[in-house]
Amino acid sequence: MKIRVVAVQFKPRKGDVEHNLDRVTDALRQVVEDNVPADVVVFPETISSGYFLEGGVREAARTREQILEALAQRYQPFARQEPLDVVLGFYELWRGKYYNSALYLTLSAEPEACRIVHTHRKFFLPTYGVFQEKRFVARGRNIEVFQTRFGVATVLICEDVWHSITGAIAALKGAEVFFVIAASPGRGFHGENVDNVMKWQQLLCNMAEEHGVWVVNASLVGFEGGKGFVGQSMVVNPFGQIVVSAPLMKEAMITATIDTEEIAIARANAPLLADLEAGLADLLIEMQEIAAEQHARDRQ
């Protein structure tokens, strides 16, 4: 199966959800009208509002139904025959709590056929240094995979993939395509690129290679209160190689046709996922022992 993926990075206007959804729509219009090869278009974490909102999350958060409705409506004037899938990050209001979430939607020329395929709520909320997520949003509790028109996928958000275990869980559950959305403020300027850009390349390449999966990453750009988001969105193949990459800091869209048949080739060359599956029962016991020990230790 070949999937045409697009990752878009643009600078959202702080807190202005309507404007930012208009810009998401502009990018979709460009994809449709200019025939940019696309089955799935991926936008970065918190593209609806910008990332650093602090208490402004209360004003910028939307329900997933509101996002679906807003995009489905905006999409109609230029809708194409074939459905178009969209992944995007937003601050979500869900059951009385706020989350840093990602939606996987299918847009269609038939308004009633537009639908939410999957919602991921960020599992690991960075709350250190410049990050304050736990103060303002609640943590998601699941690492899920879901069926798309193109096979099994997962969506992960930023720090979710800094822990290799989340990628392992998604791969064990059967995800072959990882949509990873991020907002990464640049820091560390002594190397050939910004430190965290190089770290992101390393993380995504390692994740793709270890599990033999495709990774499609969209990463935020623009300065917010002096903190500049790096962008450099990328697509990584199951061999751990970057096949296309967007520029640092600049607005852009990248596109690639990914071939899920390469997953089997990569996994035959490096059967790490199969090894992990084989050792899973033992690992689980190890994990349970660690959890039990920590629980007992912290009770002392």
Binding site: G186, F189, H190, E192, V194, F223, G226, G228, L248
Partner: peptide, 14 residues
């Protein structure tokens, strides 16, 4: 030590 060209590019964008 800093990568001065990269820092300059970053600060111009800032």
């Amino acid at each position: 030590r800093i990568n001065a060209p990269l820092v300059a590019e970053w600060l111009v964008e800032f």
